[in-house]
Amino acid sequence: MPYNLTVNGKNYAVDVDGDIPLLWVLRDTIGLTGTKFGCGIAMCGACTVHVDGQAVRSCVTPVVDAAAKQITTIEAIGDTPEGKRVQQAWLDIDVVQCGYCQSGQIMSAAALLAANPKPSDDDIDAVMAGNICRCGTYPRIRAAIKLAAQG
């Protein structure tokens, strides 16, 4: 049966099985490819999106669990105050390398700052340890979150 999804404020009716992960519905069915596939088992964080403002791993979120909720992806996170600050800090620090994990990193960082405007190093670790970066941008991710936290 079709599920009604609200993604970045737009409505989509998607006709897929309810247990299909949200990730693939976003990327393939709707065509928002900013959200990335990395592991499929919630180990790497590349697929992080916000559902009703909470960071979730879309690769293990069945689409049925996201129906009728507000879904926000990297393509629209800049419309939130935290998302905008995080993206600007990412540019100012020049965090990215290959860039593949960065959608997820930014989504996690935005969720962190929304709940915790002045995170300590330990606070940053506690949230960002869920996101893997093989290029090793971790030092700059930490610096960029601190910069974004300054306002």
């Binding site: 992080t48 960071a55 791993r57 669990d65 969720a111 962190l112 709940a115 949230v127 340890a129």
Partner: peptide, 28 residues
């Protein structure tokens, strides 16, 4: 990944238990 309880015992905001764990077991 590393998880900490945080004050809520449900993980820190940004990486809550529910970032990955749903209301039911999820097949992968």
């Amino acid at each position: 990944p590393l998880m900490i309880a945080a004050d809520s015992s449900m993980g820190p905001a940004g990486l809550a238990c529910s970032s990955c764990h749903g209301a039911e077991n999820r097949g992968i």
